[in-house]
Simulated assay, not measured.
Amino acid sequence: MTVYLISGSNRGIGYGITSALAARPNTIVFAGARNPGAQSLTELAAKHPNVHPVKLTMADPVDNEAAIAHIQNTAGQLDVIIANVGVLQHVGPLASTPLSQFQDHWEVNTMGLIVLFQAAHKLLLASPTGTPTLAFISSLAASVGFPYFNMGQATSGATKAAA
């Protein structure tokens, strides 16, 4: 049995990953989202009884610790975290980007990963698989290998690269 926690699982890439893992045999998937009652997650959980929506707000220690406690109580283990969530709330020239936008992006994209790791590391490192995994989904805007740095996405790119 492999137990997964996926953040940002109610839409986009996170939902796609959650759906694919839900269809696998011998898996339990904790679908983390700010709104675990989202229609996409309730429908997925109804279709796959191995899917458990759980409240998970990035950079919120209380939510993260509660989610990990729920995983511990329900499954007794955690083997893989796929930290998918991220924000891109501001697109525009770096020169005129409000510093508050960088702070908001930093809180979710960078600190959110740290808060999640701090809440989960003990349970994750105790994985009976012997290969606990924390995978972080970044973005093209965060890649220094990309042929150009998209200055219009500096808030997202810089904070994802920092993570």
Rank of each mutant, 00 (worst) to 15 (best):
T42K: 05
A126L: 12
L124D: 04
L99R: 13
H48F: 09
A31Y: 02
L123F: 05
G92N: 07
N84E: 04
Y15A: 01
I17S: 01
R24C: 06
N10M: 08
G37L: 10
V108I: 08
W106L: 09
H48I: 09
H121V: 15
L56S: 05
Q118C: 09
T27C: 06
E65D: 10
L44P: 02
A67V: 13
D60Q: 07
E43P: 05
A45C: 04
A75N: 05
R24W: 01
H90R: 11
W106Y: 11
D60E: 04
P49D: 07
S96I: 12
H90G: 10
G12V: 07
F102Y: 06
F30Y: 09
G32T: 15
K47L: 04
Q118V: 15
A120Y: 03
M111I: 12
F102V: 09
A120H: 07
I71R: 02
K122Y: 07
T74C: 03
V62Q: 13
N64T: 13
I114L: 14
A45K: 04
G37K: 12
L99D: 13
N109P: 10
Q89C: 14
G14P: 10
L88K: 07
L44C: 05
P53S: 07
S9R: 06
A75L: 06
P93C: 12
E43K: 10
G8M: 01
M111W: 08
E107R: 15
I114W: 12
S9H: 11
N109E: 01
Q89F: 12
T27W: 04
L94T: 14
T27I: 12
M58F: 02
N35A: 11
D104C: 10
N10L: 04
V115P: 00
A38P: 06
L94K: 10
G86V: 12
K47N: 06
H48N: 11
L116H: 02
A45F: 01
L88F: 09
V80G: 00
Q103N: 14
V87C: 15
I13M: 01
L88S: 08
H48Q: 12
N109S: 09
P53D: 00
E107W: 10
T57I: 14
P61E: 09
V62T: 13
Q103V: 15
T97P: 03
M58I: 08
Q72L: 07
Y15I: 04
E107M: 12
R24A: 06
V62C: 14
F30T: 15
G32P: 04
L125E: 09
L124G: 05
Q72W: 00
N73G: 11
Y15D: 03
A95K: 14
S19A: 11
A69G: 13
A120Q: 08
G8L: 04
A31R: 01
L99V: 15
A31P: 07
I68Q: 02
L123Q: 01
R11L: 05
K55P: 15
S19P: 09
V54R: 02
I114Q: 13
P61G: 09
M58V: 03
T74G: 03
L78Y: 02
G8D: 01
Q103I: 15
L56W: 02
N50E: 00
F102D: 03
Q118K: 10
G86Y: 03
W106E: 10
T74V: 00
Q39I: 13
Q101N: 13
A33R: 00
T97C: 06
L123W: 01
Q72E: 09
P53Q: 05
I28H: 00
H105A: 10
E65T: 15
D60W: 02
P25T: 15
P36W: 02
I28K: 02
A69N: 13
A95D: 12
